[in-house]
Amino acid sequence: MLLRRDICLGGMARLVPGSEGHGLDLAGQLALLRRHGFAGVVAWDGWEAIRAAGLIPCGMARIRAPEEALPLARRHADAGLDFTTLHVGTGFESDAAMARLAEAVCDAAAITGHPLPVETHRATMTQDIRRTLDLVALFPQLTFTLDFSHWYTGHEMTYGGEFPERLAWCDPVFARVAGLQLRFGTSGAIQRPLDPASAHFADHCAALDRCLAVRRASPDLPPVLSVAPELLPAWLGEGPEARPIHYADQTETSDRFAEALALSALAQARAERLDGADRKGARG
């Protein structure tokens, strides 16, 4: 399994003064990403600029109804995107409605050949782990973009000291991961500045290790895994339309671009550590 260093473009917005990416326009941001060795960029739009910068354009999109899946897959396939990570539904669906959405996504991917991994995201049909596992049982061909912080915080996975057990329950999703969106949260916030000394940091490393190990044992998925930090700013949008999202401190105290670089390096190191353990085991 080969990890590909991608990044979510939203993480380049409103970087703090002193950050290497502070104040850059889109062209400057893309040039910076290229210099730092990123291969692909996950974005809602701007794909031609991404391609022109020598980077791989990857899509993000949202669908709320089954009939939206195929037209979207066709548009994104025609645009030459590598894949499109999907926010699917609202989280208020019945089990039957979730099944119809999942079936539409699977059919659209099969018809067009365009990968449509479903993102584990709050306010979508995959916000609940149990119901997501039920979907996997019904549609084993589903693939996922794992944004683990949504589940870690949203389910308070450390409750009762049961984190290892809860993490193991996620294996059927880990086995179908087509992409990782990296950010580290706490029990109360899905994104916080990196603190390698914290228990939450260790928890996310354990989740990353387990996901990589389970994913690499899945023979039916492509050998390349997109790993993309997604560290969003405190405010979404510009001008009077801007609203706080509190994925970061209102007055940010950390350099999200530096942290994205650190997360990319961490994922690569964990994968290499896993490879080394496998080679050692093979030698006996």
Rank of each mutant, 00 (worst) to 15 (best):
D128R: 11
M60H: 13
V42K: 13
R5S: 09
W44Y: 15
E119Q: 13
P244R: 09
H114G: 06
F38V: 02
L180E: 07
S187L: 09
L167K: 00
A277M: 13
A49N: 06
E259G: 01
A69K: 00
A96K: 03
R4Q: 11
A217E: 14
G23H: 11
M98W: 07
D278R: 15
T90D: 01
M12H: 12
A168W: 03
G18K: 14
M157C: 01
A65P: 00
I56L: 15
T186E: 05
P193Q: 11
V173I: 15
T145Q: 11
M60P: 04
P117V: 02
L182A: 13
E165H: 06
A258E: 02
G18H: 15
D95V: 11
M125G: 04
A260F: 00
K280G: 09
V224E: 14
E238S: 07
P71G: 07
R51G: 05
A73I: 01
A49G: 12
R100V: 09
K280P: 01
G28S: 04
G161R: 02
P57D: 06
P196T: 13
L194K: 12
E272D: 04
G239S: 08
R35K: 13
G160I: 03
A248R: 03
P222G: 01
I50W: 03
H114I: 08
E156Y: 02
T85R: 12
V136M: 08
I190A: 00
L15H: 08
L182T: 12
T126A: 11
E67P: 03
R51M: 01
Q268R: 15
L86R: 14
F83S: 15
I50D: 09
P240Q: 15
A248L: 00
A242E: 12
I190F: 00
S198K: 11
W169L: 12
C170Q: 09
D107M: 12
L231D: 01
M60T: 11
R283D: 10
R176V: 10
P196Q: 07
P57E: 00
D107Y: 02
G59R: 10
V173Q: 03
P115V: 04
M1V: 06
R74S: 13
F174T: 00
A175D: 02
R273A: 09
A39W: 11
P240S: 13
A202F: 03
L146G: 00
A102Y: 06
S187H: 09
L138E: 04
F92D: 13
I63P: 02
Q268E: 11
G54N: 02
C58F: 00
F144H: 11
G37F: 01
E165L: 15
T158E: 05
S149P: 05
W44P: 02
I56F: 08
A242N: 14
R215G: 04
L180S: 10
L70F: 06
G89E: 07
L70E: 12
D255H: 12
